[in-house]
C-alpha cells in the first residue's frame, strides 16, 4: 500500500515538473508583459510585482506601434486562408470522391510538394517577385504561402471527404441535381466540421510563418513575427515591450489551438500516413 502511494507521489511529481516546464515560458512571458523593465530585470526574478499596462500601451499606441504589423499578420493569414480554401475544397473533393486517370499520381504530387526545403524555394520566389515588383506586397506573400498551405489543406480535407457515405451523392444525382449543385448543397454541408478545422490550421500556419515573411516583407507589409525584432537590437532590448508583443503574437494561435483542441492531433499528423508534413 505504501509502495503504491509512493508510486503515485512520484508520478504526480514528474507530471508537475513537465506541466510546469511546458507552461512556464509562456506564463513567464505573460507575467513579464505586465511588468516595468526594471521588474523584468530584477534579480532574483520577481513573481510578485505591481502590474502595469504600460508595455501594452506603448507597443500598441506609442511610437513604433506594432498595430500595423498585427493588422498585416491578420490580412496575410485571412487572405491565405480564403484563397487556400477556395482552391483546396474542390481539389480535395475530386481527389477523395471522383474517378479519373492519374488520380494516384495527383495525390502523390501534392505530398511531394511538401518535401521541398523552404530555404530552397525562397530564392526563386525572391528573384521572381523582385522582378515583377511584388516584394513587400500582400499578393506576393499570400501567393507564396499557398506553397505550404495548399498541400496541407488538401490532405486534411481529403480525410474528411472520405468519411461521407456515397449514398447521399447518389441519391441527389438520381434526383437530377447537377454535379456542382450536389457538391455545394449536399457534400459541403456534410464536411462543415472538417472545413472549420482546416481553416483553423491554415490560419495558424500562416500566422506563424517566419522564413518567407522575413525575406519577402518590407516597410509596408511586415507581419508581427518579423516586427518583433524591432524590440531586440545589439544596443538594447526593450524587455517589457518585447514580452507584450510576444503575448499579442501568441494570443490568436493559443485561442485557436484551445478551441480546436480535439482536432489538433489529426491536424498535426495530416498526410503523415503517406508522407511528409511541415512547419
Amino acid at each position: 500500500m505504501t509502495a503504491k502511494r509512493l508510486r503515485t507521489a512520484i508520478v504526480l511529481a514528474i507530471s508537475a515538473v513537465f506541466l510546469l516546464a511546458w507552461a512556464f515560458p509562456i506564463i513567464w512571458s505573460v507575467l513579464n508583459s505586465f511588468k516595468t523593465d526594471s521588474d523584468v530585470l530584477a534579480y532574483p526574478p520577481k513573481l510578485i510585482f505591481s502590474p502595469t499596462l504600460d508595455a501594452y500601451r506603448d507597443v500598441l499606441f506609442g511610437s513604433g506601434s506594432i498595430l500595423p504589423n498585427l493588422i498585416s499578420s491578420m490580412i496575410i493569414s485571412v487572405g491565405t486562408t480564403v484563397v487556400t480554401m477556395l482552391m483546396a475544397v474542390p481539389a480535395a473533393y475530386a481527389l477523395a470522391r471522383l474517378r479519373f486517370r492519374g488520380k494516384k499520381f495527383a495525390g502523390f504530387y501534392v505530398l511531394t510538394t511538401q518535401m521541398l526545403p523552404p530555404v530552397g524555394i525562397i530564392i526563386p520566389y525572391f528573384l521572381v517577385l523582385r522582378n515583377i515588383g511584388w516584394i513587400d506586397t500582400y499578393q506576393g506573400i499570400i501567393l507564396i504561402y499557398l506553397s505550404f498551405s495548399l498541400p496541407f489543406a488538401i490532405w486534411l480535407l481529403v480525410s474528411y471527404f472520405e468519411d461521407i457515405p456515397f449514398e447521399m451523392e447518389e441519391a441527389a444525382f438520381l434526383d437530377g441535381a447537377s454535379r456542382l449543385r450536389t457538391l455545394w448543397r449536399i457534400i459541403i454541408p456534410q464536411v462543415r466540421g472538417g472545413i472549420a478545422v482546416t481553416v483553423v490550421f491554415v490560419f495558424l500556419n500562416a500566422w506563424n510563418e517566419f522564413l518567407f515573411a522575413v525575406v519577402l516583407s518590407g516597410n509596408t507589409v511586415r507581419p508581427v513575427t518579423v516586427a518583433m525584432f524591432n524590440f531586440v537590437s545589439v544596443e538594447q532590448t526593450l524587455w517589457a515591450k518585447l514580452a507584450a508583443v510576444s503575448v499579442l503574437a501568441m494570443l490568436p494561435v493559443v485561442v485557436l489551438g484551445v478551441v480546436a483542441q480535439k482536432h489538433i492531433v489529426k491536424g498535426l499528423t495530416v498526410g503523415a500516413v503517406k508522407g511528409g508534413g511541415r512547419r
Partner: peptide, 20 residues
C-alpha cells in the same frame, strides 16, 4: 498544456527563450 507550445510560432518561441 501540450497544445500550447505546438501552436506557437517558432520565431516567438525562439525570442522568448533567448530573452526571458
Amino acid at each position: 498544456v501540450a497544445i500550447l507550445p505546438v501552436v506557437l510560432s517558432p520565431a516567438v518561441v525562439g525570442m522568448i527563450w533567448r530573452t526571458f
